[in-house]
Each structure stands twice: as C-alpha cells, then as structure tokens.
Design a protein around this nucleic acid. Structure first.
Lengths: 188, 188, 188, 188
DNA sequence: GATGAATGAGGTTTCATTCAT
DNA sequence: CATGAATGAAACCTCATTCAT
C-alpha cells in the first residue's frame, strides 16, 4: 500500500519531469504527448491516467514547478542572513528557474490556461509579489534597505528581473553584479 | 511600379501585423495560418506568396520587430539627454516590447529557429548587448554613471529587465521607480 | 459558379452516399471516417469541410435519407390509385428503406443524437405518423377501409411494419402477402 | 461447490445484465467494457474471465436474450388458449423484446458477428421463423385462421412486426389494435 | 498575383486487452 | 479467482501546405 501510494506519486512526478525535459529540448510545438511518454518510460495511455489531457498536464507542470519555486524563494528570503546574501540566493534561484524553462514559462502558462489570463496567471503573480514584498519589508525593517522605498514597487522590480535565459557570463559574477547594482545603484 | 512595390511591402507588413495580433490574442498554439490570413484580410494562399512557410513567417516577424526594437533603443539611448531620461525611455520601450509579445517572444523565437539556438538567437542577443554597452559607456563617459562599472555586465543587467508582461502599477510610476532603483540602489 | 455550386452539392452527396455504403458493408463500429473518405474518393480532411464531425455526418445521413423516405411515402400514398396499390407501394418503399440500412437505422440515429431521444427522433417519428394517418384517412374516406378504424393506431401499426432486414422470400410475393393480410386479416 | 457453480453463473449473468443496461442507456458506441464492469460491480478484468473478448460478450448477450425470447414465444404460442389470446401474448412479448433492445438488436447482432451474416444471424432468424410457422399452423388446424394461408409467408409477416421502439399509445390498446388488424384486416 | 478547396501527415485521445499482484 | 494499472493500436480531427482556377 505504501509502495502503491509512492508509485503513484512517482509516476506522476516521472511524467512531469519528463515533460519539462522534452519542453526544454524541443520547445513548445515540439512537446508531443508521445515523446513525453517515451521520455518518462511509460506508455502513451499512461499519461492520460494521471492527467486529463495535454492541457491538464501543462497546468500541473506550471503549477507544480512554479509553486515549488515560490516555496524556495520564500524559504531563502526568510533565512537569518544579511539581506545581500538573501538577495543573491533569490537571484540565483530565479535564474535557475528561468533557465529551467528556457524562457518558455509564460508561453507554457498560456497554453495551460488559454482563455483565462486574469485569473490563474494573475493569482500566481500575486503570490510571488507578496513573497517578495515580505522580503523587501524585512530588509527595510533590518535597516539594510532604504526606509523610503515603495515596497510593492520594489517587489515588482525584483519580480521582473532575469528574463534572459541566455547568459554569456559566469553565473557567479553575474549575480554578484546584479546584487551590487540593486544595492548601490549605477549612478554616481 | 511604385504602387506595385508599395503593395508588396504593404501586404507583407499587413500579414506580419496580423500575425502578432493573432499571437497576442490566441497564444502560440492558437496561431494558425488561416487566422492570420483572415486577420490580414488576405487569402490563405497569399501568405505563402510572401513567406516560405509558417516558420519563415515567424522568423520574419521576430526579426522585424526585434530589429526595430533595437533600432528604437539605439536611437533613444543616443539622444542628447541626461542618462536618467534616456534610461527611462529605454525602459519604457522595453516594457512596451515585452507587452507587445505578451511574454511570448522567447517561445516564438524558438519556433522560428527550432534547432539552432547558438546561432540566430545569440546573434540577436549580442546586437542588443552591444547597443546597451554603448549606452552604459556613454553614461560612464559623461560622469553620470560610476566609473568602476563593469560595462558588459551592466549592459547584461539592463537586458534582463522587465520580463513580466503583467503589471498592476501605473506604467509611469513603475518606470520612475525602476530608474530610481537602478541609479541609486535600494541599500542604505 | 453554377459548376461550383453543383460541385459542392455533389461532394456532400458523394460523401453521404459513401457513408451509407460503408455502413452497410462494415456495420456501425466499422464506420471509420477514413474509410468513408476513401469510398467517396476524397481526402480524409475533406469530410470535415462538409461536416462538423463524425456525429454531424451521421446526423445529416439519417436526416437526409429519412426525410427523402418520408417524401417518397407521402407521394406514393397520395397518388390517385386504389388503396391496395398504394399500400403495396408503401410497403415496397418501406422494405427498401429497411434494407438500405440493414436494420441499423435506429442505432445510427442514436449515434447521431446520443443524448436527445425525446427530441429529434420523436420529431421524425411524428412526421411519419402523420403521413401515415393521412394515408389511412384517405382509405377510410374512399370506403376502401373500415370506417370504424382508429386512425392513429392504424397508422402506428403501419409504421411498425417491416423491421426484418433479412428476407428469404421473393419480395413481390412477400409484399402481396402483407397486403392481403393487412386488408383481409388472417382470421376466418 | 454448488455455491461456486452458482457464483459462476451469477457473475456471468450479472455481467450480461449489466451489458444490456449500459447498452440501453448509452447506445452502441457508448458501450465500454469498463462501464459494463462498473455496472456489474466487478473488476474490468473479471469480464475477461467470463468472456473471450467484447465481441464474445455481445455474442453471448444476443444469443442468450434472443433464445430466451424465442423460448418464451414458443411457450406462449403453444399454450392451450384461443389463437387471438396467444397472438396478443406473442405481440406483448415481441414489443417487450424490441423495447428491451431499444431498437439496437440488429446493430448489436452485427457487432457480435461482424463478417458472418449468412450464418449465425440467419440461423437465429430461421429458428424464429419455424416457431412462428408452428404457431400459424396451429391456428389453421384449429380453424381459427383461414385455411388458405401461406404458412411461411404468414410467419414471416408476424416476424417483421413491431420494429418501432417508440410508442405513444398505451401498450394494451396498441396490442388490441394489432390483433384486431391482423385477424380481421383493415379492408371493408 | 490571389484565392480557398482539397489534402494527408501527424497529433491527441480513447479503450479493448493484458498481466502482475 | 479478482482486480485495475498499464499499454499501444487505432480512431478522430486539425491545420500547414499545395495547386487549379
């Protein structure tokens, strides 16, 4: 029974992980259920045991990985470390997230909810926004950030960072730079 | 002859503009050649007179609008105005670009060049990178930016801004905030 | 233009006729759109130019052939001939109809309207009932039928004749017998 | 052992009865083995313990219910009652049979024996024909039917009655009317 | 050039059947 | 015996592309 429950979890997860691998490899229009099944080493029909249809698979994929990203961000930004370090950790995780999706996140999210944009997508965004607001707030409270910051706007700024999935620079240096710019600005 | 040439140009443009409208409206998998043709008010076959195939259409679309975005950015960042103002203009144009594509740019670009990633896409990125490097350099030269800035990294930072196509804030305020953060940083 | 209109009509008809041929040959579960297309000598996709989906094809098929059957019955039963002859003609047409469908009419009609039974199907039945009532009435008026007949019930009786698609007897003799039984009864 | 045997019989019967319930409810293309199993309250695999495959299930269903219909008809028509009463009983049973199948009998029978039509189906028909011939013969012998009747044709006539699964009339009245028409005819 | 009817490759999805438990 | 998770053949349907007009 325990193994059964575990197997169910495993197979769903197997399929979800196969999905993002295929997605990264072949892009959105190259994402065929048959390929996902092969990659997950299950039969084509098995995918439909765990997901209603392709759209549902995408929905689950986006939801699962986005929420787990949010969770990580929440955890990282709440650790008891200097703001700068937490910011670096946030950016690191964010870049990993963008890279994981190869910039296709928004497109996949739309496929997952073709009509509704205001609802589901916005809901996700707002969760992220709130997590980041807490983060900014903590920085202000601790005196590491300027007290006059508009917290929502600053959170939104952090949310909009790091779109580019292509990077020519060593990640380390890039993140260090981003932190530097965000903390001190580029002006004289 | 002149009118003919103009017509040719017009019809191509018509189709390209119809394409992005359909794309914004229906998303990537909702982008059907037939819908594009209807939106452009031409016959379905006509699309194939101006473009090799759907992929070629997307290639042209991405290329055209991206290059024109780059051109705008180059112009805006080279105007004889204070750096802050040019930065604001850049961000404004950048946000408009992201919004125009509703976050689908990366996905469409991949459809346009399914296999090749290193080549075409990277080439585009590098152009943008160079434009932004010039911009940063000009700011350093004029003394408006810190002289110790790593110019390529700073340019890359500007390139990676503004992914989120969803915004709850008045654009004006948001851009003003972005400028402020970039110039002065958020640290105390 | 005239040819175009004709072609459209022809192709729809072609497909409908191919459909009933395939249906007769292979039965209901052997009725595949691809086979219909091949039988109609058109591409698979062409079927979907003329019909929404398979269900719509069946709907059209049932409707078309049933209404044309009704029309024939109406005409035959209104001719200026003795009742017996008209009855024979009706039975002949009825047997041809049943044979044309090989007894599958009811099943196909259900596929065509899976949920709704009260509506469409009943509507069809009622049309037929009314045509037969007129027929019976005319026989009563002309004195060829007993004046005490319950007209609706008698019409319903005629409607329920001839289910069996399998016949070992010469059609002529069978029909003559049916007429004889209906007119005079089997009792002493 | 007795209970075991009984259980075997019971489960087969359970499945067969579930099958016709599902068939009536959902139609032929809605007849899925999984639904049958659920309706019979057994596992999907269990169906395959009692039947070779779906076709075999249908074969058994048609055979079982048709033979039991024939048996009933034989019994009813051989009872020691006036011909008219036996005819009414026959019609009653016949209408019940048609209604039980909702007009799908012929279609299901074909699914059960896709290729062979001459053989199995014809064999069934002939059995019925012979039963009805005996019935007619008995009527003639007893003087309740006209002595000049062609017995096979008359039997075939009885066989072809009652196709319509839809009835707006009280069954009682309808049957009385049918008997009346068959015995006395509709002519003057 | 311009069109859209026609096509069929190829994708999504269903469901009869198997088989390990 | 009984089960139902897993499978993949095969059906439906879409849509990029062609080509006769």
């Amino acid at each position: 029974m325990a193994t059964e429950a575990r197997n169910v979890v495993d197979k769903r997860t197997q399929i979800l992980e196969a999905t993002i691998r295929v997605l990264r490899e072949r892009g959105i229009s190259g994402l065929k259920v048959e390929d996902v099944a092969r990659e997950a080493e299950v039969g084509k029909g098995t995918v439909y045991l765990y997901f209603e249809d392709k759209q549902d698979l995408l929905r689950a994929l986006v939801e699962h990985r986005t929420l787990s990203f949010y969770e990580d961000v929440r955890r990282l930004t709440q650790e008891a470390r200097p703001f700068r370090e937490r910011l670096a950790a946030l950016l690191e995780r964010r870049l990993a997230f963008v890279d994981e999706w190869r910039g296709l996140w928004a497109a996949v999210a739309r496929e997952a909810h073709p009509s509704d944009q205001a609802g589901w997508l916005k809901g996700l965004h707002e969760r992220y926004q709130r997590i980041l607001e807490s983060f900014v707030e903590s920085g202000v409270r601790s005196g590491e950030l300027r007290p006059d910051l508009d917290i929502p706007l600053t959170a939104a700024t952090l949310a909009a960072l790091g779109c580019s999935p292509q990077l020519d620079f060593p990640r380390e240096a890039y993140i260090a730079h981003l932190v530097e710019v965000l903390m001190k600005g580029v002006g004289t």
